[in-house]
């Protein structure tokens, strides 16, 4: 029911507004719901608002976990 797109914060202007890069396209995004975000951070954006900080390292980690799990179960089955 809700599109959420990951983007990276390019710059922060006053009034809790940031410019966020999505695959090379930029749009102004409000940080009112995630004021702790800083330049360089990844965040999930929905209807022009940053909703959640994202941790690319964590994404990488869970991805590797899935990979390892599938490897292991593949060998045992």
């Amino acid at each position: 029911m809700c599109l959420g797109i990951p983007g990276q914060i390019v710059s922060i202007t006053e009034n809790q507004l940031a410019v966020v890069d999505f695959n090379g396209v930029r749009r102004e995004v409000s940080l009112m719901l995630c004021p702790e975000l800083a330049v360089g951070d990844y965040c999930l954006v929905h209807v022009g608002f940053a909703m959640q900080r994202l941790e690319p390292e964590e994404a990488q980690e869970t991805m590797e976990l899935l990979d390892e799990f599938l490897e292991a179960s593949g060998e045992s089955s």
Partner: peptide, 16 residues
Amino acid sequence: VGFETTSPAIAAAVME
């Protein structure tokens, strides 16, 4: 319109 994902954004716009 929207569900819980969208409502905080609508609320923030109302405050704004």
